[in-house]
Design a protein around this nucleic acid. Structure first.
Lengths: 109, 109
DNA sequence: TCCCTTACTGACAAAATTGTCAGTACTTTA
DNA sequence: TAAAGTACTGACAATTTTGTCAGTAAGGGA
């Protein structure tokens, strides 16, 4: 199959697309979270997956990870400056989701 | 695992997320396309997958499918009025993708 | 008659993503 | 001595998404 050329859509999609990243970022834009807090706040994501998503976001420079090196561990995740540029986009997505939800449920149910 | 509650992010993500939908929609916001045109314009998506994505978009009321009932077939896809509400969001995504691409390639390569 | 065209379908395979389960480290509290 | 707490990791399984391949219909042209 032909090679995929550079596409900004692909870039954006790779960085904050996926099943859970938008939701995670939506929270982190609001405030910092300890790992356990985030986990309890989104119990429908398995711990393993949450860790992986956070790791990818950290690698992409969207999220900052701060390990306080305590026992028991205390690790705090926060949005980076660069990640914050996603805020309006995330807001638009959520708004559109609401719009679409209302538009599609008004007549069918 | 806990049930996923209603989340506008999930809704938006389900409708226009995925590997190819943003790219397809980005094109359809510009103009209408015959199936074959779209296929040639994005040769990196397999025909089968392109059809499936379009079908889902049609089911979600984002894209309109018009079959001219000719032989050989002539099927034209266009964005619906509702789908058009995604336009600014798609633009923001593409813009952010560019921004991120430049931010991440400036120093690392 | 044979081949071309176009949009599409079904069966299936490969790959990517998501999820489960059992641990680990080290300190505090009982 | 035992248990609890926290943020993880590794091995592996299930699921979802994506991709491949071989068809099909039906008219037109050589």
């Amino acid at each position: 199959m032909a090679e995929v050329p550079y596409c900004p859509m692909e870039v954006a999609n790779r960085v904050f697309g996926g099943k859970w990243k938008p939701g995670i970022l939506f929270r982190l834009v609001e405030r910092s979270y300890r790992f356990g807090e985030l986990k309890r706040d989104m119990p429908w994501i398995s711990e393993r997956v949450l860790i992986r998503q956070l790791k990818e976001l950290v690698e992409d420079g969207i999220v900052h990870r701060e390990d306080h090196r305590q026992v028991p561990p205390r690790v705090v995740y926060s949005i980076t400056e660069h990640g914050r540029t996603l805020a309006p986009l995330l807001k638009s997505m959520a708004d559109w989701g609401d719009l679409h939800f209302e538009a599609t449920t008004r007549c069918t149910s």
